[in-house]
Design a protein around this nucleic acid. Structure first.
Length: 145
DNA sequence: ACTGAGCGA
């Protein structure tokens, strides 16, 4: 009786691929969202300057002012239009007299309809005043050190 | 042409 041979033939699993897959699955192929931002999406700081978007392209400065004047005293309103063609860009700015009026205007006009379009009102970003130092080489250590 | 998530002459 000598019928024994090739007892260990199987077990030829390519562990090279396994190792690769292990590494791949180890690096999270789905990248679970850490949700590190849940209380940050603040539009801007409170200001009397309001940024209104979602305006109808034919809404004008007067219409914007008229709409926001119902929630406060609008000192100035401005719908941004392209001076090259004169068409509205679909957003504008509204300046209230006080911060509370601005807040009232936002809470009162944000999400409302104007000229058939849902408009969004929020605090406008601080804009560099006309007269601020223009971006020059102030900060580039070129020349000499 | 104004047709869209956008921050001004």
């Amino acid at each position: 009786m000598a019928m024994r041979a090739a007892t260990t033939v199987v077990a030829a699993t390519p562990r090279g691929l396994r190792g690769l897959f292990s590494t791949l699955t180890s690096t999270s192929p789905f990248v679970p969202p850490p949700m590190t931002q849940v209380d940050k999406p603040s539009p801007a700081e409170p200001s009397t300057n309001l940024f209104v978007s979602g305006l109808n392209k034919r809404t004008t400065t007067d219409g914007l002012k008229e709409a926001f004047s119902k929630f406060g005293e609008v000192l100035n309103a401005k719908v941004v239009t392209d001076r090259a063609s004169g068409y509205s860009k679909g957003f504008g700015f509204v300046r209230y007299a006080t911060l509370e009026e601005a807040a009232a205007g936002i809470k009162g006009m944000d999400g409302q309809f104007l000229d058939g379009w849902v408009i969004f009102a929020e605090y406008a970003r601080p804009r560099p005043l006309p007269g601020s130092p223009p971006p020059g080489n102030n900060g580039s250590p070129y020349g000499r050190q």
